[in-house]
Simulated scan of single mutants.
Amino acid sequence: MLADPFVLLLAGHYAGDYLFQSDHMSEHKAEKSLTGWLANGAHAACHIGVTLVLLLSARALIGLDISATGTCAALAWVGLSHGLIDRRWIVERWMRHTGSTVYFESGRGAPMVDQALHIVAGITPAALLLTALH
């Protein structure tokens, strides 16, 4: 049962990051200001909303076995983890402490590490929550 929630959470992630994220969210979500926190919160809320629609659609259309408790826990984790990772300091710290400083400073590595963190630390635990709490 883990595969279905994981695929839906991954689809929600990509939709939230690439289909529904506005330029304003993208440009400001990491700023240390009220604007930054609001943009970050709006972006995390977008992820929660699109993922909820996907999960409820799968429940209605294919009978995906998810509970309200598991869904709430998974969505809370998606929102919190996504918002935290997108503040960008975790990505920078990770890259500097794993010997990828040059890759980080070139601007090429951070987007890939960002996506890897979202999958490993965000989506996977959320899928496990959905599966365990059904």
Rank of each mutant, 00 (worst) to 15 (best):
L54H: 06
L54V: 10
L54E: 08
L54C: 04
L55S: 07
L56W: 12
L56R: 11
L56S: 02
L56Y: 09
S57V: 14
S57A: 15
S57Y: 07
A58D: 05
R59K: 15
R59Y: 04
R59C: 03
R59E: 12
R59L: 06
A60C: 05
A60I: 04
A60L: 12
A60H: 10
A60G: 07
L61Q: 10
L61V: 13
L61H: 03
L61R: 07
I62N: 10
I62A: 13
I62R: 11
I62K: 13
I62Y: 09
G63N: 02
G63D: 03
G63S: 06
L64C: 09
L64D: 02
D65L: 09
D65Y: 05
D65G: 05
D65F: 00
I66T: 04
S67D: 06
A68T: 14
A68E: 12
T69D: 12
T69Y: 09
T69E: 12
G70S: 10
T71L: 14
C72M: 13
C72A: 15
C72W: 10
C72Y: 07
C72F: 14
C72V: 15
A73V: 08
A73L: 15
A73Q: 07
A74H: 10
A74Q: 03
A74L: 07
L75N: 04
L75P: 11
A76F: 14
A76N: 01
W77F: 10
V78K: 00
V78S: 00
G79S: 03
L80Q: 00
L80F: 14
L80P: 01
L80W: 13
S81N: 04
S81Y: 06
S81H: 07
S81A: 14
S81V: 13
S81I: 13
S81T: 14
H82R: 00
H82Q: 06
H82G: 14
G83Q: 02
G83W: 00
G83D: 08
L84Y: 14
R87Q: 11
R87V: 03
R87T: 07
W89C: 04
W89H: 13
I90P: 10
I90D: 01
I90E: 05
V91A: 02
V91L: 06
E92T: 12
E92S: 11
R93K: 12
R93S: 14
R93C: 06
